[in-house]
Design a protein around this nucleic acid. Structure first.
Lengths: 300, 300
DNA sequence: GCAATTCAATTCATTTATGAATAATTAACA
DNA sequence: TGTTAATTATTCATAAATGAATTGAATTGC
């Protein structure tokens, strides 16, 4: 049996007319009328006599008012208790993410989050280090690999399609490599202490040493600026390259595996409404971004 | 607040998983999941931790279970009272009974009831569990003991004469016990988790442990089939044994107390014409059955 | 007797909820 | 370290519920 019908029944019983009861419940008169019809059909009893003066309780209807009131009372107790438990949405959520994600993906998403949940304070911690969620360096981490830490809740939310890119100034001067052999003889932009790129290339069957990269930086933003400036060939997410004047994709045939985007949080997610809201919002909004495929247009 | 969400909340809290609770409520798992999400959003509290092992109540969720139960109880009272007001003869009567009674006694009786009262829809719920008449799991319960629940109307309608039986194949191979001492050394068919038989034997002054039963099942119908198949010695109602080829009663001297057959219904339902008809019919027709004495002929 | 008023009932376009199928996730186990 | 089984989450086409506007009906007031 539909419990809401009992509430509707009581409202009509106490207000006398459908219109008044509907206004009281904040629903429309036709809906309320249908509720009464449905309840009567369900239980097989005519509860109201419909008359010119509104809805008058029948004898069986009258006998049910007390039960409905008791149910209402329990519903009120439930709401009251629930209200006492309300977890404050206000407070801070610390989010950590790689530099690239912090710089190029999160800002608009976080702006929308701040807008949607004004009570939540947001702290963004750009960092390439693997933050420790358990020690609460951050509440939510956005990572490009599947988190392995115990007691961490993780969800994959999207993928970052990657490609090999260079500026056309560079290509004019040094030529466009057509094979990986040619590619390896070019001026490559690499990372210094991080093995991100070297490991990624090994997965593609290309063995590279640090020395083979002509220019190196561990700062991902600077890395991308170097490529944009024509300093050499580098790897970048499609969405970064989209709409950048002069940036050309090369070696289309070499499939670079997309980087997964994982959201991770600690167990407190399960009980903290604030973190959960932020987590859900990030999941939905990052998922909705077109990050997987190469974007050929970048109209905003 | 949507009252139905409270019912969904309670179902999940009591069943532990969305799927089980959904089956219990007769709705789908995705719908139930959305109900929980909606309730959490409504009241601003995370009620469950979603894990691989199902939905675990959080601290605030736990504190709301009692209120939800109280609301459920009031909803039950409402629907009970409503059912009592039904004057129409047409409608459904839910009858619950033990497996043995459901399988071997009720079918012909219910067939006659359906014939005599064609407007009444009959639902038979075979179950060895003690159904809760207050929550309207059933309108009428047929039980082998005196019901103790409050506000329940109970009538004893007959008695089930019991005896000790075995198949002659079994007796040929293992001999026929003449005393309870011999009896205890035989292959006995018993019940697994139910204490029905062990308790019954204790009342006869025989102490038995579960291990002493060579074959055990909690399914009463399977129990009787085991005895019929010559798997061992068991207890059975005389009427079951009557006319079964090869089945022999043993230990005639050991008087096993007859099991009473009680009909139970709820006070509120005594005003329902339909349930009253069904109740009266069952009373008269079960009472008329020759269940007390051992029947030496089984002519139909 | 006639209009005005006050209700419930109906209609229909829209919104919302639902469920079947499927995906994703994870804890235990081999 | 993978596999399996159990569970929650998502997707999308469909069904159901909803409400604005309207109609219909009946009583009141003049």
């Amino acid at each position: 049996m539909d419990w809401n019908l009992v509430r509707s029944f009581l409202a009509v019983a106490e207000n006398g007319t459908l219109a008044a009861a509907a206004a009281h419940l904040g629903i429309s008169q036709p809906t309320l009328g249908r509720h009464i019809d449905a309840l009567e059909r369900d239980i097989g009893v005519v509860l109201f006599a419909r008359g010119r003066r509104g809805m008058t309780l029948t004898e069986p209807g009258l006998s049910l008012v007390d039960e409905a009131r008791a149910m209402q009372a329990e519903a009120d107790r439930f709401s009251l208790k629930a209200a006492g438990n309300v977890q404050a949405l206000s407070g801070t959520v610390r989010i950590t993410a790689s530099e690239i994600v912090s710089t190029y993906i999160l800002p608009p998403v976080l702006a929308r989050l701040a807008n949607a949940e004004p009570e939540i304070q947001i702290e963004l911690v750009p960092s390439n280090m693997v933050e420790n969620l358990l020690s609460r360096d951050a509440d939510i981490a956005v990572r490009m690999f599947r988190p392995v830490q115990n007691d961490v809740i993780a969800r994959k939310t999207n993928e970052l399609g990657m490609g090999t890119y260079a500026h056309e100034d560079y290509l004019r001067r040094f030529g466009t490599p057509q094979t990986t052999q040619e590619f390896m003889r070019h001026r490559l932009v690499g990372m210094d202490r991080s093995n991100l790129i070297i490991d990624g290339m090994r997965n593609l069957g290309i063995t590279a040493l640090r020395d083979q990269f002509a220019i190196r930086t561990d700062d991902q933003v600077a890395y991308w600026e170097l490529v944009k400036a024509g300093a050499g060939i580098g790897f970048a997410a499609h969405f970064l390259a989209a709409g950048q004047p002069g940036i050309r994709r090369i070696l289309h045939d070499v499939e670079i595996p997309a980087l997964p985007i994982w959201l991770a949080s600690h167990q407190e997610l399960k009980t903290s409404l604030r973190i959960r809201r932020a987590m859900d919002f990030l999941y939905q909004n990052i998922k909705a971004l077109p990050l997987k495929q190469e974007q050929h247009v970048a109209n905003e």
